[in-house]
Computed example of a mutant assay.
Amino acid sequence: MIYSAEARIVVPVRDTEVTDRVEDAVRNIFPNVEFEREAGRIVGETHSLEQFSEKLHEQAILDTARREFTKRADEDGFSFALKKQAAFKGVVNFAVGNPDELGDIEVHVTVDSPGVEAFVDHVAPPTEDGKPVQPDERE
């Protein structure tokens, strides 16, 4: 199956931050991102969430990711926010509650195919006992 999606990533850059470092933090999570700099923020785009998915698997946070994706999902895609400080260390940490004082990494994923639910299953598969389960393995 071919998965087609585009992620738009918007990150505020505060006066106390170095724009290149903020870009590096985002690249730690989304290595293929391409940026445009705007006043007070960077806006990035990527068509690959493979490395992001690998980090979710490595950190064993698939259930958390699925929960965050479905909170802000619609028929066109889903959105989520990540902590900027964690991204500097190459760690995925979902932002919940009040935004960090440096601002969060806002990600909006638009899914072209096969569909939002199938794409979420691809990026963060359902789990049983903490292990990913493929659709044909579910009871």
Rank of each mutant, 00 (worst) to 15 (best):
R72Y: 08
V120P: 07
V33Q: 09
M1A: 02
A87I: 10
V43D: 00
P99Y: 01
S48Q: 13
I105S: 03
E36W: 04
K71E: 13
K84D: 00
P135E: 12
I2F: 03
S48V: 11
V96I: 12
E38P: 07
Q51G: 08
E23I: 01
D24N: 13
V91D: 00
T46G: 13
F52D: 10
K131C: 09
E68F: 03
V11A: 00
V109R: 07
K131D: 08
P31V: 06
V120D: 05
L56W: 08
F119N: 06
A118C: 04
V133G: 05
G103W: 00
D136E: 12
R8T: 09
E23P: 01
E75Q: 13
V111H: 06
F80H: 05
V43Q: 03
R66Q: 13
G115L: 03
V123T: 08
E36G: 06
V111E: 10
N98C: 12
D104N: 15
E58G: 12
M1E: 00
E68L: 07
E34A: 15
E36N: 12
I29H: 03
E137I: 05
V111Y: 04
F35D: 07
I42E: 02
D100A: 12
A124L: 12
N28W: 04
A60M: 12
E75M: 11
T16Q: 09
I9L: 01
T64N: 12
